[in-house]
Amino acid sequence: MTVPALKAKDYKSGIKAVWCPGCGHFAVLSALTKAMAHLGLVKEQVAVVSGIGCSSRLPAYIDTYGFHGIHGRALAAASGLKAARPDLTVIVAGGDGDGFSIGGNHFLHACRRNMNMAYIVMDNEVYGMTKGQASPTTLPDWSNSKMTPHGTGIPSFNPAAIALAAGAGFIARGYSGEPSELTRLLVEAIEHPGFAFLQVLSGCVTYRPDQKQWKEEVHSADSDLPTDDPVKAAQMIQAGDGKATGIIYAKRFPVWQPENRTDAEINEIEKEFLL
């Protein structure tokens, strides 16, 4: 008996999202369910893991196993889960504050640990859930937050450059306004054997209405990308405007995964303590 193929809507939980009307995250959710359907993922074999923030609400809206943890720690929880359960497809989702500020250290080490998981950062350059403060990707002169009335005055964080320097083997950028391209990138990220980092420009209609402008600014990456040359990737990332979509860098590194073998019993191990 063949099991009927699941459609994208079959991966939706039916729980109503808390997001504002017009939020870019709806498109990310939709693209993710399409990617899952495209890959034919068995729902109960998938775990979607997140931290805290608007985008981190995503697991509840997907009908798989989900883990909505604490602020900044999604990658840590996902890494433990994957280490213990290599059979699962692990997808991590979150925002720019969660991933690059409070969770920045885990981002670095997840890139270099290279466990097999996809990490989707819905980047809107703002803290939405706490009502509009600057995030690490906010430009230094954005002064619309009461908390930083003169702007942050410090350069914004370049996620792709950091990921490359930290050793990630898959770096891509998508845009919520280009859903079919985003679906393709999600499929590639989930299929990549190792840690796959996908930054999604996903605008905040409430606190960053200026991001409507992204529609005009976003463009496809150069046709000679992706590259597997880290020097070229670094040049492209540093010279770019941060609005180019596509896979920037793809290279296979050894995947870290503990071997779960059993070749002893506890009582044998305990014999080492005998005199």
């Binding site: 775990a47 893991v49 883990f67 943890g69 604490i70 900044g72 720690r73 840590a76 929880a77 996902a78 890494s79 433990g80 889960l81 994957k82 280490a83 213990a84 359960r85 699962l88 250290n105 885990h106 670095l108 080490h109 503990p258 071997e259 779960n260 073998r261 059993t262 070749d263 002893a264 506890i266 191990i269």
Partner: peptide
């Protein structure tokens, strides 16, 4: 010892990672 018993130990980047990693693994049933 964990390696011999079908388990593993992961040296984490900090204690924030340690605790969240074991929560993730335990959520997975281990």
């Amino acid at each position: 010892k964990l390696e011999k018993l079908g388990g593993s130990l992961l040296q984490a980047e900090d204690e924030l990672a340690s605790i969240n990693m074991i929560i993730g693994a335990s959520f997975g049933g281990v």
